[in-house]
């Protein structure tokens, strides 16, 4: 399915995504991104700096949040601007299921140039882990 601009209205809610964050995901993201900070892998180190447990890389959360938009438009290269504030960490226990984050998106604005601004949400339990998260996408006329 391809989204057309004529199908888009302000307030439209995009299909949400529930995504699990496991310790194995954090190891994979550390290796892929080069961010080897031990607070994302070693609970002894994480607790020594006052965290409740190992936390996910904020950039992994950012990388997954945009999937709400790119799954909706289909083409990931349609994203022309993307920004987030990493407000709270996603805590990842050493369990098979890890932690689940719910990602949401809502059309906030249709710009004069035909691009669309989507406001994004990311909630872990009842904690907002991303704030001021928004993406601008180009959508076919």
């Amino acid at each position: 399915m391809t989204i057309k601009l004529s199908d888009v209205t302000v307030g439209l809610e995009l299909p949400p995504l529930d995504l699990a964050f496991t310790r194995a995901d954090l190891v994979a993201y550390a290796n892929a991104s080069g961010d080897m900070n031990p607070i994302h892998q070693d609970e002894v180190v994480a607790k020594s700096v006052g965290l409740p447990d190992v936390i996910a890389h904020g950039m992994l959360t950012m990388g997954r949040a945009i999937r709400v938009v790119t799954d909706w438009v289909g083409d990931p290269t349609a994203v022309i601007d993307y920004s987030v504030r990493m407000t709270r960490p996603v805590v990842v226990p050493n369990t098979a299921g890890g932690s689940t984050v719910t990602f949401t998106g809502k059309v906030a604005q249709i710009n004069d140039d035909g691009t669309v601004q989507v406001d994004l949400g990311a909630v872990f339990g009842d904690v907002k882990v991303l704030g001021l998260a928004k993406a601008t996408v180009r959508i076919a006329q």
Partner: peptide, 22 residues
């Protein structure tokens, strides 16, 4: 490796030409 670490399922990455936004 980056696509896989994000858990991406978007078929656009299967062709192996573009990298994800982050």
């Amino acid at each position: 490796a980056f696509v896989s670490a994000l858990g991406e399922t978007n078929p656009a990455y299967a062709t192996g030409t573009v990298a994800p936004p982050t």
